[in-house]
């Protein structure tokens, strides 16, 4: 499956991926409203870790054997058999955050329920990748081997 891969040598820590992720997962889909006014505040599913010297945008690896799915106590976290995308069913999630406690990449955020990257589901390219000005994010089918 295609995943988002981050290249730390190209990342400038500009955090535009976070801005666009927030927008893509907002009610309004408007960059200003989403990032300044919308309440509840949309949560970015991608996080730029590190500092100006060294950084990378980290988001869900959509693991082959996802620990978050194993740990989910409600069956809300599932890996789609066809697409491989690991998604949260927001109706079923109770927000216990056990998934967060086991994700080795630190890719699950706390909201009303567990919040994570869904690869923008319907898009051909996730918003973070599309809007990374220095190509530090790529959407590719590396099969995890690179």
């Amino acid at each position: 499956m295609k995943r988002v891969y981050a290249k730390e040598e190209l990342c400038l820590n500009c955090r535009l991926c976070e801005v666009y992720c927030k927008t893509a997962h907002s009610q309004s889909k408007d960059i200003i409203k989403a990032n300044k006014y919308e309440d509840p505040e949309p949560v970015s599913r991608v996080t730029v870790c590190g500092d100006k010297m060294l950084s990378a945008a980290v988001n869900c690896r959509h693991c082959d054997n996802p620990k978050c799915v194993e740990a989910c106590i409600t069956g809300a976290m599932q890996k789609d058999k066809k697409t491989g995308i690991v998604r949260v069913d927001e109706e079923k999630c109770i927000g216990c955050m056990t998934c967060l406690a086991v994700c080795p990449f630190g890719c699950i955020k706390t909201g009303k329920f567990a919040v994570k990257c869904d690869l923008c589901c319907t898009e051909d390219e996730p918003a973070c990748v599309k809007n990374c000005p220095n190509r530090a994010l790529v959407y590719a089918d590396f099969g995890g081997k690179g």
Partner: peptide, 21 residues
Amino acid sequence: TPSLMWFDKETRKSRLKGESA
């Protein structure tokens, strides 16, 4: 806050590729 940036380059790279942690 725990961060992937805590790890050495090799570990970091393999994690960013999504290799099993």
